[in-house]
Design a protein around this nucleic acid. Structure first.
Lengths: 223, 223
DNA sequence: GTCTATACCCTGATAGAC
DNA sequence: GTCTATCAGGGTATAGAC
């Protein structure tokens, strides 16, 4: 994988941030160029058009899934299912640290451009595919501890979709509550898919002692 | 509730459709005016600015939740939980009928404009709040048949977030599979929250005979 | 409420020297 | 690869008659 110019990197990084926060249509190439300290000549040297920058943003986000999301998550837990929750927590951290401005880089672009920009849609699709497949592979690792007959691909899709939606709603609500509810629900769901004879402490069937009524500034790292 | 002009209605309807499909930034007021057969004079007679049209779109979508989504859903089933799934099915129908162009009217605008257009964010928030509260009230109706200790508001948030996300992903994938996975997951989830002594046919714990590996054109109305 | 005409700016994109 | 200068067009919004 060739090392690409730092200017190009800066443009992609800047655009990742601005598109996520403001959307594609609300972000002008001028703004991107200024913040990235690049000029028009550089921009169009690297990208034929604005759309191609959006595609590059998604490509890089997809590449970053392994290095910046799933690999770090793997280091926080041994249990594959817990690693899934570490991934969800990663997005929660981003959301809160950005004061509810940053959701999923792909979700935002996909929602806005799926119909009008086929290239962007294709790249967003890849992002979702990789996300789902990585989650599925974590479920595969945990297969022995799950009840029989679990469609792991389907569950992975559920997790990914729930995450995406929760991030959109959380940004609109300016609150982590939707995400906490979603994560809590998924935790219960996966807990219920655990075989009764393993990880017994994880399956007090319906509701765990309930993340004690999470508030936005609650110490959410503790559960 | 005063009867408002048909021109205004046309503008809102047209914008609802175009914003949902193309996003806000990709839709010009000219395009809206042309399709709605209105002129600039009319447009700015009703709306101080484009943003206010987006707000009106969300307001109308929120009003429409009761009349166009939850009320029809109530007519398809007696069981409150089944009514929730009728709501999800409503969105699935829209999605498929539009060839995967139409997701949630609010999700699209919220994702794109939450940061830059506070008024839009507030209206999107209302849309989500109403959706969540209506689902919660259906869960309340079903409370007797649910296991004790279910945080119904949290479950309602989960359902709404999962729906929103599944629609975004489904549009990017041009496939109903993500939505089917999400709905299937929610069905299993709610099935597991059912008391064992009621609706026994709904709770064969982990996986139902599995919606027989749904394909995009499968007869999805049958399960 | 609706119409036409138009202001005016900012947008994405290009040209061509260095 | 980067720079400055610039274009052509479409964008939102306004003015004022009817």
């Amino acid at each position: 994988m060739a090392r690409r110019s730092t200017t190009r990197d800066r443009l992609v990084s800047t655009a990742t941030d601005l598109f996520s926060r403001q959307g594609y249509g609300q972000t002008g190439v001028n703004e991107i160029m200024q913040r990235a300290r690049a000029t028009s000549g550089s921009f169009y040297h690297f990208f034929p058009a604005k759309e191609d920058l959006a595609a590059a943003v998604l490509e890089r986000a997809t590449e970053g899934l392994e290095t910046e999301v799933f690999k770090p998550a793997a280091e926080t837990a041994d249990d594959p299912v817990e690693r899934i929750f570490a991934v969800l927590d990663h997005y929660r951290q981003r959301l809160v640290a950005s004061d509810f401005a940053l959701g999923s880089p792909a979700g935002c672009l996909a929602a806005e451009l799926s119909e009008t920009h086929p290239l962007v849609r294709a790249k967003a699709r890849e992002f979702f595919d990789v996300t789902i497949n990585r989650i599925e592979s974590l479920l595969d690792e945990a297969a022995d501890s799950l009840v029989a007959g679990v469609d792991r691909h389907e569950v992975a899709e559920l997790v990914a979709c729930t995450l995406e939606g929760a991030l959109v709603v959380a940004r609109a609500q300016q609150s982590a509550a939707p995400l906490d509810a979603a994560v809590g629900g998924l935790r219960r769901h996966l807990g219920l898919l655990r075989r009764a004879d393993v990880g017994a402490e994880d399956a007090p069937v319906p509701m765990r002692p309930a993340p004690p009524r999470l508030r936005h500034n609650a110490d959410w790292r503790t559960w």
